[in-house]
Amino acid sequence: MSERPQVTPFRPTAVALDIDGTLIDHDEGLSPAVVDAVRRTAAQVPVFLATGRAWSTTMPVAERFGLPTGGIVVVSNGARTMRYPDGEVLDERTFDPRTVIASVREHAPNARMAVEEYDGTYLVTAPFPEGDLGKNAKIRVVSDDELAPEPVTRLIIRDPEQSEADFVRLAERLGLHGVGYFVGWTAWLDIAPEGVDKSTGLKVALAQYDLDASGLLAIGDGRNDIEMLTFAGHGVAMGSAPDEVKSVADEVTKSVTDDGVAAVLNRYF
């Protein structure tokens, strides 16, 4: 009688972590248990923050967790991969958003739009709700024509008067071609270069350490985490994630308010 082949237990060689709804709650709250788990993990393997946030609002989070100097963060949903804390750009993907801007004005005339400049300033067509673009974000209001004179890493669309479901339908109506998109946890739509998602930046990050995705542990809670979770050797969805995110994950952990990230990392590190 032949023996069954042994299954090698998963052992992470690197970790990718979403920020909002995964590491911190929507009030920017940070659990000491999660901080301790992430710091302990970062002392043993590379830890990559992989977020829809801009570099300017990601760097303070890396500082709060005390991530090692010389580490890598994936920002703007994978459109920009950078070294921390000096801001060296390792990879950048851009697109021309002018056609999308015109389509948004046609289908959602009251929507607010924003793009991020290199210095971290947001150009916006109208002020966003307080805190949406990060605490203390630098913002400059411009016209639609002034919003994107050059290619950008992403275009943000926001309408506080609409719902998440409304924006799922809006994305379908916009007839987006040549770009990708992610619907956020509220009436928020991120438009990205075609074929670019968090896994795009993580491939660059892993290559810096001569690692591959088979040893990557990834944890996230949003629709923009789906590609990251399926790319990783082991993908974990937060307990508060939408069903479509949970369905692609290898595991579902507790919510951010119940220290779901710590529960996973403490098993390995």
Rank of each mutant, 00 (worst) to 15 (best):
L90Q: 01
L147D: 02
P129S: 03
F65S: 11
Q162E: 11
I101H: 02
G52Y: 11
W55Y: 13
T99Q: 03
G131E: 00
P46D: 09
G70W: 12
Y84Q: 00
G52P: 06
Y84W: 15
L133P: 06
P160E: 11
D159Q: 07
A79C: 14
L90V: 07
T69H: 14
L155K: 07
L123F: 14
V45I: 11
A79K: 12
V73G: 13
N77C: 13
V47L: 12
A79Y: 07
A148C: 03
V38Q: 07
A102M: 05
A111E: 14
G131Y: 02
V168W: 09
L67E: 10
D96N: 08
T121R: 05
I101A: 11
G66Y: 09
A42C: 05
A137F: 07
R53S: 08
L67N: 04
R80H: 11
A79T: 13
Q44I: 08
E146G: 09
V38L: 03
R105E: 07
L123I: 04
V35D: 04
R173K: 15
L133F: 08
G134R: 02
A114Q: 01
S76Q: 15
V35F: 04
R40E: 13
E92K: 14
P97E: 01
I139H: 08
G134Y: 03
D132G: 08
E172K: 15
A43Y: 11
P149S: 06
D119T: 03
E117Q: 12
V168Q: 06
E150N: 11
G120E: 04
N136L: 02
